[in-house]
Design a protein around this nucleic acid. Structure first.
Lengths: 365, 365
DNA sequence: TTGTAGGCGTTATCAG
DNA sequence: CTGATAACGCCTACAA
């Protein structure tokens, strides 16, 4: 059996020759304590190696001083995207002396309320937010504190930080068009996500529509699942149907490697034959070859900021800004280059063997 | 102000017409309760939406029912390696109804002890373990429960799960030699880590020595920092000094992309010109092009297992096995092929421009 | 099978 | 500035 920490605040008080309340005051940095007393008691605390019992503190104070990030995580799977949010949020919480945890289990309404009711947390961070999100309604109705990474259709009274997907897509197209590209495909979020009103999916699509209109481009759009094999197949099929393509914009984060691999197999060079613009964090963009030109998705910073916002909320400190939309910042790396008019032997490429056959897909206007 | 959960066990008891202790028993699944009573009380709990106050439970029970993974995490940086441990451990803890948290801050002796003393956790999972690790000594001496992902020089009485780095390296060499390769470089852990007795670094080196001996190979070993640019530089220099190279074994996980990028830039084809064997999880191996042949590093499973072990320990349940070494499982993907004797125009490659200059490195025997 | 009562280690209120 | 003392919400002998 492990040696328990017998030392309590009472013993500290006794050794220091003061009352428990005085020790408690010192522990909580209250101002109304004589400097001499404070020093003496702190010395005793040090000597005894005393640490306050956090559960007792939480119970007595009526605050858990804990927050959680609600991650709709599939078991085993976590990407750099979520990880950025997570590490950022964790570090910010640690800085504020708040306990941080990750809720990995799928949340039901009941589960979500339980987090608050059972005093596991004082507040949560929501991610993967939908335009109309039941979690938001539920928490708002119960008046439980929370902040979002993402935002809804109606955000009055809500606190959030989100990436500006709409302008990210527009910026991506601006970049390619600026390099002379005219035949650009857009690899969009899966249709079900769009229909369900998943924020990034909806807003990326809006950005896409605006970009088409702005530059007078032909619509070449394919919706794919966020998996490497699906993107691989989609890319193959896309180039089959649109051999004139010289540009590609993707919203998939890490899975863009599927497109790269497909192009590689088709004998298409990046960026000589096809330029790619993605949405990606620094880390992710550097993970593939060539490093991707991408709208920078600052996941760490967003998680950090969200966490700070929540803690401020819980401390009843004023929030300077409570709704922030992070503007896209296009980082040019090595996956884009000026358009390069194709040589005439292009069609020979199509005689190459393709290992994975394409699933049926629609190429919508 | 958020609506607080007024409902307590006392109210449940009153409404159900029983005593608090009965409700408590039901909450804790004690057997000594009449079935009728149990059902009635559970109905009341449901109706009232009651959730026990976890802080109070922990205080009264004298157990936090919480564990933590001690991650010597550099701020902002987390790789798929740590993430696998983390998600696995988190899921296992959740299954056991234990609270899980990640300690992101660098631990001092004081900090580590505080975790226990302040009842934040009942036990911890250590990772990045050294052959002689002060944390292990400290916890052992205080008789605090813990398990390790990794293991020490002396492991008597300790509980751990670790990946068999030594045999992983041997297996990697076996594979390459089996394909006819004779000139194989080994990209080792940085010297400081080896000297400090970092477990994987030490054991990988042992495996390397044994592999050389087993197959009678020439030693071509370079120690690199675990960063993409460093590995890039090291690869360039390595091929400069050893143009006869046809095989490469790396222990770096994600950073191996640096080698791939260097080879790409040097005009070397993978696997036609150079075969690579890495140590990597499924996810990581698939992230680069071509997908890497690698000794599978089952990080999720290891985190999961470590967490289960710790929880069992804390529940005083018997541990079936308390020291497990995960055997390497070589997964052949697309970065290795039979040796392919070089064409005579190889040296022309060295006239290509290299963007990053190599830092000075030693190529030890 | 159920109820009573004391205690878990702090914080907070209110006197002094 | 300091000290009693009552919560905080639950668990757990012990008794019935």
């Amino acid at each position: 059996m492990p040696e328990t920490n017998d030392i309590t605040i009472a013993e500290v008080a006794q050794v220091a020759g003061v009352s428990v309340s005085t020790v408690s005051r010192i522990l909580n940095n209250r101002p109304d304590v004589a400097e001499a007393t404070r020093r003496r008691v702190q010395q005793v605390i040090e000597d005894l190696g005393f640490r306050p019992h956090v559960q007792a503190q939480r119970l007595a104070a009526g605050k858990s001083r804990s927050i959680a990030l609600l991650n709709p995580l599939q078991v085993k799977v976590m990407t750099y995207l979520e990880m950025g949010f997570f590490v950022g949020a964790a570090n910010a919480a640690a800085e504020e002396n708040f306990f941080f945890s990750l809720a990995t289990r799928p949340v039901s309404e009941d589960h979500l309320l339980s987090l608050y009711k059972s005093a596991q947390v004082d507040g949560v961070i929501l991610m993967e937010v939908y335009m109309n999100d039941w979690r938001v309604e539920l928490l708002r109705q119960h008046n439980y504190p929370f902040v979002m990474i993402g935002h809804c259709a109606n955000n009055t009274g809500l606190h959030f930080i989100d990436f500006d997907f709409e302008n990210a897509i527009i910026t991506a197209f601006d970049h390619l068009v600026g390099l002379g590209h005219q035949h650009i495909a857009f690899m969009a979020f899966p249709t079900p996500l769009q229909q369900a009103g998943f924020g990034p999916a909806v807003r990326a699509q809006t950005g896409y529509r605006k970009a088409l209109q702005k530059h007078g481009l032909e619509a070449i759009c394919v919706e794919v699942d966020m998996t490497v094999p699906d993107i691989f197949d989609a890319t193959v099929q896309l180039l089959d149907e649109h051999p004139e393509l010289t540009g590609l914009v993707t919203v998939q984060i890490e899975e863009t490697v599927g497109a790269i691999r497909a192009l590689h197999q088709l004998g298409k060079k990046i960026p000589d034959d096809i330029s790619i613009v993605a949405i990606a964090s620094e880390k992710t963009a550097q993970l593939v070859t060539p490093p991707l030109t991408a709208a920078n998705f600052p996941t760490y910073e967003m998680g950090y900021k969200a966490s700070k916002m929540l803690v401020n909320l819980l401390k009843n400190e004023p929030l300077e800004i409570s709704q922030v939309l992070v503007p896209p910042d296009l980082v040019v790396r090595q996956s884009t280059s000026p358009v390069h008019h194709p040589a005439q032997n292009d069609h020979q490429l199509w005689t190459m063997p393709i290992t994975r056959s394409g699933a049926s897909r629609s190429s919508q206007q």
